[in-house]
Amino acid sequence: MLKINNLHVKLEDEDKQILKGVDLEVGPGQVHAIMGPNGSGKSTLSYVLSGRDGYEVTEGTATLDGEDLLDLDPEERAAKGLFLAFQYPVEIPGVGNMTFLRTAVNAQRKARGEEELSAGEFLKLIRAKAKTLKIDADMLKRPVNVGFSGGEKKRNEILQMAMLEPKMCILDETDSGLDVDAMKLVSEGVNALRDGKRSFLVITHYQRLLDHIKPDVVHIMANGRIIKSGGPDLALEVEHNGYADILAEVA
């Protein structure tokens, strides 16, 4: 599904290397988690994959189902099935949540040569999906993320993911700012999307999210590289001992 090979990335405006050779392969239906200390490059990886401005790839490749991602515009990557749930979802005053989502869903369908959803079809679909995420009609009508609580913003991200039905979902610290109940709700939303084919890359600081969204593989990232990979136990090890041991081990 997602294949990252020797990816090197620096900031566009300054001479600062952030990713220094990331190798990662997420197979169909798999859930991979990336953990790592602050500043290790986790969020940068998610931004580079989704096509945010401000980064320059100096070496390496990233492909989705064999297709090069790095040359595509963000919207093209989205239409190919890549989705990033933002750590800090952006507030957009003046754009209704529902209008935004319908535009996005139909733009992707159009880009893929599929028929666009009618207003009625869309409404039916979004109502059903919003209900399971406890998103009420008012939240759908309000401007995108404006005045939403931290938990509401994250639920809104998962709703977008559910509506857009991507192949490859990247969750960037989706657990940050969530209380226990909200985390459970969001996790259930994510788990409902697991169908054996859709893949997930879950970036998190804490093991607790992985209690809810069970990973197949856990990677530890530090200083712009993946320094260790293992099973779910690796996350437990980090939770108990911190990163110091692992960093010392590979140093």
Binding site: P74, E75, A78, F86, P143, Q160, L164
Partner: peptide
Amino acid sequence: YYLRSRGVPKVDAQDMLVLA
């Protein structure tokens, strides 16, 4: 970036933001 990452093409995203 947020709008485009959801698949909204650049020109449409710009129009949406101008109208907003």
